[in-house]
Design a protein around this nucleic acid. Structure first.
Lengths: 193, 193
DNA sequence: AATAACGTGTTACTCCCTAACATCAGGGGG
DNA sequence: CCCCCTGATGTTAGGGAGTAACACGTTATT
């Protein structure tokens, strides 16, 4: 019953840590900020920090969009070409996210791209996302190894998407993200014939 | 004059450290091996280790093939389609490397793919390689920002290459690497039309 | 009211990595 | 032959990330 209370308190603490961390990162830089400082700014001990985020990097990384895109891909008609399924799923996801988290996403993205340690973790996430794309494009419970064709398609689509995201972040959000994504996928279609 | 001696001695020490490290990593696992143990096994102090390798990860990462591929791309005719330039350059590089370092490359690749910390650094390297591909595909000293088209092509080619490498490593080297690479680029050409 | 469960803090520890300083080898000029 | 200079190495001390063990207090259960 009062699990609700616990959950709410935990969510508050979590947000407090994350906000304090991002504020300090933007203020002094990622490497120059220590976990102890974040914990103190959030009013908790440095152990509590690690109970909420397994590593210092996770405060920034935290990718919550992967499950959504998997669902969107699976819900596309199976007779559609794989690349088109991914493209439509991504477009739908961008529409769903909309302008709501735009600023936060942009800030976190720039932080990640400009900090080596975070970049590394970002690519590690990309690896996870690729495996997810491969599984979504294959049958869902196919235990057979994913064929090379599917893997290459998944990796190329993801590469196009990431390139669009990177370009967007480097323009400080001046470009239109959905347009960039469309353009990137168009290059994929047009260039390899 | 005796710079030669110094250089040879340094090269020996470097190889000793790297060999001791790889041996220990394969024996006990990457995370379970400490830098101090590597240094001791190589007969040096733990400071000497860091003088040769900036981080523990670099002992495994150490990508010496990037400059070669850049040269190969630049030496392709400029009127060739970008993706073809990359494909031919990669094929030539594989021929140059040949079977010499095959075992070492395979071992290191498997180690990287199975160790989270190394995977992260691997993707970070992929990012650097992508920038390098983009520059090689553009004019060499073009200070203008690389157009999205070039970036997408570079990222897609690299994605195909890495997918082939990953598949090869996962097959424990049973597959034929050049064939896998050809196949991956063929998917790129065939799928996006 | 007693007790179990859970979040939290404290402390101490390991490991990666850096900085400052000492040491030791060999090479060149007197 | 000796002194000094240079560059590689070792020693020591320390900061910061992350982990483990245990104690404390508050909340839920009976």
């Amino acid at each position: 019953m009062s699990d609700d209370w616990r959950e709410r308190k935990k969510a508050r603490t979590r947000r407090a840590i994350q906000e304090a961390a991002l504020r300090l990162f933007l203020d002094k830089g990622y490497e120059e900020t220590t976990v102890a400082q974040i914990a103190q700014a959030a009013g908790v001990s440095h152990m509590t920090f690690f109970r909420y985020f397994p590593t210092k990097e996770d405060v920034v990384i935290e990718d919550e969009y992967d499950p959504m895109i998997e669902e969107l891909i699976r819900s596309r008609p199976a007779d559609e070409p794989p690349a088109a399924r991914v493209r439509h799923a991504v477009t739908q996801e961008l529409a769903l996210i909309g302008a709501a988290d735009r600023e936060v996403v942009l800030t976190r993205l720039r932080l990640m791209l400009s900090t080596p340690a975070l970049r590394a973790r970002l690519w590690e996430n990309q690896y996870r996302t690729q495996r997810l794309l491969e599984r979504a494009l294959s049958g869902e419970d196919d235990p057979a190894p994913v064929p090379l064709r599917t893997r290459v398609i998944a990796s190329a689509c993801l590469a196009a998407l990431v390139t669009a995201l990177t370009t967007w972040a480097e323009s400080d959000g001046a470009d239109d993200l959905p347009a960039l994504v469309d353009e990137a996928f168009a290059v994929l279609r047009g260039e390899f014939d």
